[in-house]
Simulated assay, not measured.
Amino acid sequence: MIKRLLVPAAGLVLLIGCAQMLGKRADYIKAPSVAPGAAYVGSEACLECHEGYAHDRNNVHMRIAAFEVPGGYKTGCEGCHGPGSAHVEGGGDTEKILRFTEGGLEAEEVAGVCTTCHQVGPHMNWAGSAHAENGVACTACHRVHLNGNKRLLAKKQLDLCAGCHQDVNAQGYFASHHPLKEGKMVCTSCHNPHGTANTVPGMLNTDERVNDLCLDCHTRYQGPFVFEHDPVVEDCLICHDPHGTVANNLLRQQEPFLCLTCHEAHFHAARASNDVATVIAPGDPANTIGPTDHGFQKSFMTKCTQCHSQVHGSDLPSQTVPGGGHGLTR
């Protein structure tokens, strides 16, 4: 009976997922309306007035062949701007052509044009992306005309992302940060700005966990280890902030405060010192001599990794006292 129910249940989940995706696509991707009765006139007619774009022939959009676009869609200028006859006959009336400049198409209409071709691979999840949901148009990041950038970015990638994500950009100036400003990686090394299919926030370039993305570079922490550190296995971001921190190694806090978030003071740090308080007259606080030295606290509450250096996992136990040495006080 259970086996019979599995297939219908899986099919129902798939149908619900598809319905949600179609709903999102309808919200964030919309085909723009072209001028009534407009017909295609070819790119040469466009260049009679827009002669400044004649040098744009090396643009990848101008070099696409007709068989490379889906459904016999037009190529050249009208592949993006729509049929131009009404625009030409109207003396260049900008209301009779698809415009991507300010005051022209809305963000979802721009996406409707771009996703006509860019609908597979890294672009297929645009409708569910945070950028689409926040009304970011394709043209906010990309400049199609007269642009020598390989990906047609409007600016250098780091400057482009920093224009909106100013808080994250500020973290890049902290003492500990990923080498973005040094030019050894870029934002898209970790993020896909066009959206991802996973449920991990931040549009990360991973199909599964955050850890899988981190381990692409930090493979030495992958293990397996005999003694695993539970937060490491669960999520690297529990201890690290990848955009930059004041603490070393991108730690969210300095030691031992970060460690004490989960680990209360154990037998080393809480062990009684030999120099304990000496009571001269019981019941009289004025006649109590307090300890002058806290050797154990100084030694073991300064930096946990002085002893526990392999915090990501190890084949060695944290201590070798049999029978649970954490209970010792001497």
Rank of each mutant, 00 (worst) to 15 (best):
V69H: 12
H308I: 00
H118L: 08
C138G: 05
V69L: 13
Q319P: 02
C190H: 01
A19F: 02
C161D: 12
S314I: 02
V120R: 12
V233F: 08
G52S: 07
L250S: 05
K184S: 14
G104V: 00
E133L: 11
E234L: 09
P122R: 14
A265I: 07
D293T: 00
R330I: 00
R63G: 04
G313Y: 04
V110D: 11
D230C: 07
K150M: 03
D284I: 00
A54L: 02
G71S: 03
E95Y: 10
V88C: 13
G103E: 06
I280H: 15
V210R: 03
G323N: 03
V186T: 04
N248V: 08
Q119P: 06
P36H: 11
Q319I: 01
H218D: 07
C114E: 07
T75L: 09
Y40G: 05
Q297N: 13
H87Q: 13
G103Y: 12
C46G: 10
A162D: 05
I64C: 10
H123D: 06
A39V: 05
T329K: 07
P282K: 02
E264L: 05
G202H: 07
T94R: 13
P32M: 05
E264T: 05
I16S: 10
A39M: 08
A140T: 00
H50M: 01
H87P: 14
M185C: 02
D56P: 09
C138N: 14
V34R: 15
K181V: 06
S318H: 15
Q119N: 13
A197N: 11
Q297T: 03
G71V: 02
N274F: 00
A66S: 15
Q222L: 10
L204P: 12
G290K: 05
T75Y: 06
A170C: 12
L251V: 10
A130L: 11
V60G: 15
H142W: 02
C190Q: 00
E78K: 09
V186P: 13
A65P: 09
T139E: 12
T320H: 04
R25G: 08
G42R: 05
A269H: 14
S318Q: 05
M62H: 08
L98G: 06
Q253S: 11
V226Q: 12
A130Y: 04
A272C: 04
S129A: 07
K155I: 02
K74H: 15
T261F: 11
V200D: 15
G325P: 05
E182T: 02
P32H: 05
C138L: 01
L146M: 06
E208C: 15
H218K: 14
M21F: 14
G202S: 08
E109A: 04
A175E: 13
D56W: 04
A10F: 02
V210Q: 15
A45H: 00
G121W: 11
D235G: 04
N59P: 12
D235T: 02
H123I: 07
A140L: 01
R252H: 12
H191Y: 00
N211G: 11
M301S: 10
I289G: 01
P317L: 03
A170E: 10
T196L: 03
A66K: 04
N211D: 11
P291A: 01
V233C: 15
